[in-house]
Design a protein around this nucleic acid. Structure first.
Lengths: 211, 211, 211, 211
DNA sequence: GATGAATGAGCATTCATTCAT
DNA sequence: AATGAATGAATGCTCATTCAT
């Protein structure tokens, strides 16, 4: 999942008594595709194992249950997005912000099915909710570090805004709302650039420091 | 559902040969509680009927399936929130914005369980997704009318921001993120007031790059 | 059901507090159509009442249960076929036999759906089985009277042959078996004519008593 | 089902991780008993699995649904009857005919419950109807081959006569009709012997109008 | 007599999970 | 480690029948 390309991968090469790590990795990789395609509720654990070329029982030797596998998949997703974002070369805030927006929107669009599954599980499983919130906290810490002048609450709003908007765009909501997705992306980039910019340099005349 | 008070109502008074409308209403009311309590996936149609004091078969006389009932419940929720918001007395933008934020946060907190169910369904049922997007479009239209100077894209961002933040606050995420919910609410109110205010009065010279 | 014509009858005129007999008759008439159309298992008792323009409860005021209604319908069917057969004008055996075959085949074809329902019920309900056997005994008595020279066992075989063949033809089995329905009908008529004919008048020399 | 003996077998020995074939076979065997005992409508897939000593889920690993299992059972029945008939030693027509009648009557009596189920399904399920007609066509072909002088239509009548009469005898209809089952069987055997006999040996000049 | 809301046992089917092999 | 047959609780839904109005 290093790349969001939803490769039309052929049936996996097939293992045969591999290392636990390899088996686990294969399960995670295939589950990612399955969850993205059919959703968490639409995939049964037998299929998950079969998709990776294993018998049903293998699944439970490597994961406590279906949820645990999903959490692993989610972790990978977060990690991949993270990598993509932090791999960005330095540059002026506007350019960087734009690039980040594109990455984020791309991830959300590409892995829409996974995001849906995440919503289902966050809404129905406290454990996943916690894992999700942990990831969120990590993002917030990162953002706070990058923009020390930004109040933590405002940073949180920014994250929320990004998350919800990205999901909405990925789901095609702009069309349903009569909006231009490109405009939405631009507005998002603008918000991010503003937030990441140094606090408004010098003699900001009246109180309009806000953002 | 005129009030978000989640009354810990005891087993419903119990009917006995009521009108179809009354039965339907009772099913909707009890289902609201059940969905809020146990979640969409945590109840089945039999239980929903029993919760309202009926036998399982009754359910299918009034609703095609569980989803149809949920949509009805959701419609009620949207309507109630709507009523509460539009019932607000006029006043200066800041005060109004604050009141609106409180209403919205209140609804989301009170009906957290319902919101979770909504997320589950939006993520797994295209039909509910559509219904949800319709409600969203309606809100956007309303906002656009109230703040004609606000570009539609910005209005959409505002809605997204509100929705996600409200859900987050309702879920207790601020604590997990080391944030002060009151601060978050204040920031939200500030955004709303700004958006609803007339477009920046006079000779705002150069720096008004706002976003 | 005096005539097998499957009239595309419009929705019944609708009653309103009629005599018990009229209601009962209406239920029987409409049930005949419904059973013929959707089969016994494919028709639920509510629909049966509704088809006749009544509420579900009415049904049980006039019939003990669905089965009882079917028995009534069956009785009508038997009666109608009977009437048609006994209404035939006298004539030479061959002509009469042919006419009878045509009547019987017509009835079975027209009321194929009803026959199917009869098979379902005969096979699963001892009560219906008994009613059916009673009707059969009556036919046998009639035949025995008409052809006194015919051993009762042979008469029974003739009845069985007619019943099964007529059902088969009505179901379109000849096509599936590579047979000509007309030939089948002719053969049937031949059997009947032979059976009804006086015992082979004169000096039948060898043992070729065959029928 | 090699023998029609309806052994009053006790609860099956019980398996424990058998091969799919063995499980399937066990399901078929037990379903045969269940269908014969309680009828097709009188059992459900859960019961069928339990009767074979399995949990409900097992059923669906081996059969699409109850109907598919029944078709399998029916196939076995047809096959068994077939085997019994074709295993008959050669001999003179009359003796052979008598033996065949006895076999057929025996099968129908022994598996009366199965035959009832077949009637139910033929009358309510087009798919089973087709399977049934295919079996019928096969029998007809066989008969046509054995008795090449017999017009196909007459052969069909013979099959129909046998089927219906055998079912009737198995159901005890002779008693209800005041008939002697032995006589019926004899008459049946006579018909068969005649049909199977070579076409009337020598100089039968005029009277052979019989088809 | 007629109504139709309500009943509730029943049924086909699924699927996460276990465990003997 | 891997297999896959087996589990069984759970779920959505139907429909013959009842009975309060």
């Amino acid at each position: 999942m290093t790349t969001p390309r939803q490769s039309t991968t052929r049936p996996p090469p097939r293992p045969r008594r591999g290392t636990p790590e390899a088996t686990r990795a294969r399960l995670v990789a295939c589950a990612t595709r399955e969850f993205a395609r059919a959703g968490y509720l639409g995939t049964d654990s037998n299929r998950l194992a079969r998709a990776a070329g294993y018998a049903p029982g293998v699944f439970y030797r490597h994961f406590r249950d279906k949820r645990a596998l999903f959490l692993e998949v989610y972790r990978h997703f977060v990690e991949a997005e993270w990598q993509a974002l932090t791999a960005l070369p330095p540059g002026d805030p506007a350019t960087r912000a734009r690039a980040m927006v594109d990455i984020i929107l791309g991830f959300h669009r590409e892995w829409r099915g996974l995001r849906r599954s995440l919503h289902v599980l966050c809404a129905s499983d406290p454990g996943v909710r916690r894992a999700y919130q942990r990831a969120r906290a990590r993002q917030l810490d990162w953002l706070a570090e990058r923009a020390p002048h930004l109040p933590r609450e405002r940073a949180a709003l920014l994250l929320y805004l990004f998350e919800r908007t990205s999901d909405g765009v990925a789901e095609g909501e702009p069309a349903a709302l009569g909006l231009d997705p490109a405009e939405l992306a631009a507005a998002l980039a603008h918000e991010l650039a503003t937030a990441l910019s140094p606090p408004a340099p010098v003699q900001a005349p009246p109180r309009r420091t806000r953002r």
